[in-house]
Design a protein around this nucleic acid. Sequence first.
DNA 1: CTGAAAGCGCTAACAT
DNA 2: ATGTTAGCGCTTTCAG
Lengths: 326, 326
Amino acid sequence: MANSVTLNDVARLAGVHPGTVSRVLSRPELVNSQTREKVIKAVEETGYVPNLAARHLAGGKSATIAIIVPDIMNPFFAAIAHSVQYTARRSERLVLFADCNSSAMEEREAIISLARNVDGIIVCAPVSDPNELAKAALGVPVVFVNSEGGKNTSVVIDQEAIIKLAIEHLMVLGHTNIAVVSGPRSFWSTKIRNKVLSNLIKSRRELNISLLKAVEPNFEGGKSCAKEIRSLRVTAVAAFNDLQALGVIVGLTGFGVGVPNEVSVVGSDGLPIGEIMIPSLTSIVAPLNRIGEVALELMDKRIHGESELLVKVSPYLIPRGSTAPC
Amino acid sequence: MANSVTLNDVARLAGVHPGTVSRVLSRPELVNSQTREKVIKAVEETGYVPNLAARHLAGGKSATIAIIVPDIMNPFFAAIAHSVQYTARRSERLVLFADCNSSAMEEREAIISLARNVDGIIVCAPVSDPNELAKAALGVPVVFVNSEGGKNTSVVIDQEAIIKLAIEHLMVLGHTNIAVVSGPRSFWSTKIRNKVLSNLIKSRRELNISLLKAVEPNFEGGKSCAKEIRSLRVTAVAAFNDLQALGVIVGLTGFGVGVPNEVSVVGSDGLPIGEIMIPSLTSIVAPLNRIGEVALELMDKRIHGESELLVKVSPYLIPRGSTAPC
DNA sequence: CTGAAAGCGCTAACAT
DNA sequence: ATGTTAGCGCTTTCAG
């Protein structure tokens, strides 16, 4: 489309062969500095922008990566998408994005239609089996976020640390009767957390931890637990994530249970909303802006044949208004 | 990359010429039904997925569009991005996404680097001059969301309706002393709304509307207005958007001013958070899921040479807990 | 209705 | 250090 300037136009203007222009753009050190200057000048004068399709076809690299998220409206994934796009731009790569509506089918379709057209795919919190997804990518590097296992490459938020930080924080405040709200059974993170919790329950007999049934990791899910939490007579709750924590707080408040006066609540993710709600939310912050960086590093390593399979990023706790001494 | 199946492979398997396979894929009606069946079978057996780069190069269409947003973490834009991507997928188009951090420079750079590689660009709430941006796109169709003017194609949320719905709702509740919080001066929507407001102030002498100074369209911006609002002794506030409304409510509450008992607050955008906060937020809902649809329709029309320049989508009011009779 | 052939804009060997 | 050449995988004329 449009009156686009091609590499040939630049070559003509600079009085060199197209191959030379290509070289200046990809490996300038191979070109005589005078020639290089001429070419660069011509590029600037013409406003030349490379045609990625042609590059892809000729060179085998698309300079494009894809990110697949279950739901871009979820601030957790929006933050990851932001981080991926920010990092990709620094290395002059474009980002294709697909929102699969938490549907396994759409996720699979997205992988298939993207694989041939990108240099790598980042899949956030996959809803289908990662091994299957990796297979569907037909050799294109896939990096998973918050998922782990098989021969896959992953960057995950350290789930064990999340649990430990939350429980420890509550213990320091004197809480021993604690309810833990569970995320969906299908989530990788839920599985890990539940494992860690059962160990904790065994090893720390002074604690009385009630693991609640699995609910959706959102406001409604949290709110739906409020009744059970009240009847449990615990003094503290650790929610699966911030949205759920918010639901728990609203639910408890609705039953006349004060937060943090009567019950302390700790969330997870460190979403911006936790800062502004009342009470503000104590949360285990996941450094989401690092996820994109790490994911792209891992992708590059995989492209170059390395095989660092797993990076855990460490969360940290921000104490705020929703937790108080027992 | 990978052991990808090409169109030639399919042709060989089906025992036809590659050109025929291409035809089956693009204009099946031109092909004998028996041949077509053979080809389709071969496509399925091989799991052939077209190489978009090659298609783009040969056919001039990339089957890819781009969306540029100021900030994907803002749920308003996340919703639009979701809608665009959902619509694009139905017509088998991929979506490149760029988050320009509300920076005019990054916005411009994004347009330039994307233009050559997509069939069209959607720019949400442009921070730089739309005419300049359209020029930078070098003939690639650009559709603006919430921006208007020049010869550009836009889809906008009817700003006049937003103001009128908000004010009318408050009037019906008996409010006559109303503060209106303003968005950033640079926003197209701010300009429109302020114009509508000054007309309203002139024509409705029974109303006492105070137009507050411009603040950021987020929680902090809203909160920073609370003091002035209190001193104004109004009974109602119309915020620029929901995030701001939330800030106003938190700020007022902090000063001991009850919402909605003493002051009613109405927001705009209809974000999910308005539903769950306490009090829940009366808001002017923008049908964001329609934006993507409309934007892509307009883009297609522009590609086919039509020139429908502007579509306004209509917002509607959802009354909730943050507004009450005066 | 289908085969043949040219070429989209670029890169990467190879040749000089 | 630069020019030359042969495609990358596909669409699209043009013939037949």
